[in-house]
Design a protein around this nucleic acid. Sequence first.
DNA 1: ATGGTGGGGAACCCA
Length: 262
Amino acid sequence: MTLTVATWNINSVRLREPIVLDLLRAAAPDVLCLQETKAPVEKIPTGNFAALGYRHIVSRGFKGYNGVAILSRHPIEEAGELDFCQRRDARHVAARLENGAVIHNFYIPAGGDEPDPAANPKFAHKLEYLSCLRDWFRDNRPERAILVGDLNIAPREDDVWNHKQLLKVVSHTPVEVAGLGAAQEAGGWVDITRQDIPDGQLYSWWSYRARDWDAADRGRRLDHIWASPDLARGAGGSRIDRHVRGWFKPSDHAPVFASFDL
DNA sequence: ATGGTGGGGAACCCA
């Protein structure tokens, strides 16, 4: 079978329910991974998702911030919780499909404004989280696995609108890029988006604060789809649906897609 | 150098 996966930080699943439904109708991925649901599991509006065929959900979340969910048209079961830094802060959920493939959905800490772990506890937390991610996948090598999410890091020069200008901006600093790279390498993860689209500027996030996000185009690629090498060989069809950033009452992120031959 | 805009939820927290 071909499995199409999408990842999208929707910045409140309750406020964004209409455009989540629009995306499910328009793009019809098999699996949609959401971040920043900002809701406890029982407050996720599952009824209308189920009506479109997305009857299966695993989620972790609470009131106010963070929160992740996986919606699926195929049966899934929960496949473990990775609570790096032991904060119970709902940054990861995993699902196992009936064919055994596992999908990890992460919301990595944003890290605050100041890229100095000594001065900024949020940045220290982000770096610690990346170390835990690296150690976990070093000790638990993924097979038949997909990792998606808002990783809050744009690793490549062409993943940001201005590499030089963003070197000291959290999300593109060398220490974060190295931390994410170490985690990726420890697991042997393949960046599917860049396997499919190796050249050129590529963004998945544009700030709310720009007067005209589309014209300014000061984007960053913060949202990623990775896979273990066995699944990477049968992956393709990557895209970022930029136009979704322009929908009514949008998220500041656009959804990222990839397809897998399972 | 600064502040710009959102969401959650009722004062500031988060991004």
